[in-house]
């Protein structure tokens, strides 16, 4: 199939070019050109309140590299890495379960995974806040259970329970990680599912027939074969998590500032676009390095298999 496509575009380059031109133009005009403008800002400075002069200065990058902003960047990566780890740990069994579900159930399960995308992130985050707040639904439920237990103890003349203390579920780092996992989990499950779904089932049978247990089959056969899915899952979970700003803004407490919150403030409250551009691109350079590293390691695995 791939070869026929290759041949046909070599035969009719005009056709190929005319098909490729619109998306390429779109990409240039609406993604690369604006990005380029922001990139040039990162080498400029403010002139008055609204003008930016691009003079090739590295002062913004120098400022962005001071320990304050580096520590926030590292903290953001820590948040994102933790989120990605939880997504992977929770997403792998989910993806596996969907893979082995019956065809009819499978499409329902996939629909459930994609359902959250139909609601705006802001609304989902507010919904999460309604659940987690001091007098929210989770604490309300716990309160009822607590009172129930206290009532039973009272009936059997057991010890009296102290008054219910609501849990602090919102406005802390726990809420931020929970919110990020909630948002990112589908992005982890879908690539894992597509990798696992293509897996040759006979390999599993062979492994089991040859005496490997279920766990060993999972670790030594399934996991290595699903590695491309795991890698792309990690990438599409990690990168947006590092750049999350709405979640830490709404769910976070005093210690939940992430790098994207700092960037947002540069473009709004601090009105320092060149500096904001420099931190954004610093983040992007780091991301590029991560992707480059991944592609350096990926071919080796292909060669081995």
């Amino acid at each position: 199939m791939a070869e026929t496509v290759n041949e046909s575009w070599k035969k009719s380059p005009g056709m190929f070019a005319s098909l490729l031109a619109p998306p390429t133009l779109f990409l240039f005009a609406f993604l690369l050109a604006p990005l380029f403008v922001v990139w040039t800002y990162s080498f400029g400075h403010n002139e008055g309140l609204t003008e930016i002069t691009v003079d090739g200065t590295f002062a913004n990058y120098a400022h962005a590299l001071n320990p304050l902003y580096l520590s926030i960047l590292i903290k953001s990566f820590a948040f994102a890495a933790f989120t990605t780890f939880i997504c992977l740990a929770a997403g792998f069994p989910i993806a596996l379960a969907i893979t082995f579900a019956k065809a009819k159930t499978k499409s329902w399960l996939l629909l459930l995974i994609m359902l959250p995308f139909w609601t705006n992130l802001l609304i989902r985050t507010y919904a999460l806040m309604a659940l987690l707040r001091t007098q929210g639904y989770v604490n309300g439920f716990l309160h009822i259970v607590w009172n129930g237990i206290a009532g039973v103890l009272h009936l059997v003349h057991g010890p009296a329970l102290p008054a219910f203390q609501p849990l602090d579920l919102l406005y802390n780092n726990f809420a931020v990680v929970l919110g990020l996992v909630y948002v990112q989990l589908p992005f982890m499950v879908l690539p894992l599912y597509s990798a696992l779904d293509r897996l040759d089932r006979s390999l599993l049978e062979a492994s089991l027939d040859l005496g490997a247990g279920h766990l060993r089959t999972m670790v030594q056969v399934v996991l290595p074969l699903a590695m491309p899915g795991v890698a792309s899952g990690i990438l599409v979970t990690l990168i947006p998590s590092v750049g999350a700003f709405l979640t830490p803004d709404l769910l976070g407490g005093v210690d939940s500032q992430m790098i994207a919150n700092v960037i947002e403030r540069q473009f709004k409250a601090a009105n320092d676009w060149p500096f904001g551009a420099a931190i954004s691109f610093l983040l992007m350079y780091v991301t590029f390095v991560a992707i480059a590293l991944q592609s350096v390691f990926a071919p080796k695995k292909e060669a081995r298999s």
Binding site: L68, I72, V254, D255, Q257, V262, R265, Q266, A269, A270, D272
Partner: peptide
């Protein structure tokens, strides 16, 4: 703004 960033 940077003062508050440092505080946070």
């Amino acid at each position: 703004d940077e003062l508050l960033t440092r505080v946070r």
